[in-house]
């Protein structure tokens, strides 16, 4: 499947791009992270501590063990600092 993968805040800066299109067979968010981190060091460094990151699938907050199913968009970011 084709996914739009988005990065925000320091994760975007560390990976060096705000979004990219990814071809993947990943079944879960964790599988997708494993594929990304295997690519290049900058991904491995950025995703080193998943506890410091949050994920949204199709713009809904979820967990790293969430299935991707028919998802179109996955976003990774640090804990939010709104307000």
């Amino acid at each position: 499947m084709t996914l739009d993968v988005l990065y925000f805040a320091w994760l975007r800066e560390r990976i060096g791009l705000p979004r990219e299109r990814v071809e993947t067979d990943a079944a879960t968010v964790a599988d997708l992270v494993a594929e990304l981190t295997a690519r290049e060091d900058r991904y491995a460094v950025a995703f080193q501590d998943l506890k410091a990151l949050r994920v949204a699938v199709d713009q809904e907050l979820t967990d790293f063990d969430a299935p991707l199913g028919t998802a179109r968009e996955v976003a990774f970011f640090p804990p939010m600092t709104g307000g």
């Binding site: 925000f8 805040a9 804990p79 600092t81 709104g82 307000g83």
Partner: peptide, 19 residues
């Protein structure tokens, strides 16, 4: 809003910038 709305703040000072 503090921790469930997707905003991220970065502070820029004379010494640089920090999330």
């Amino acid at each position: 809003l503090k921790s469930r709305a997707p905003f991220w703040k970065k502070e820029v000072t004379g010494d640089g910038a920090e999330w």
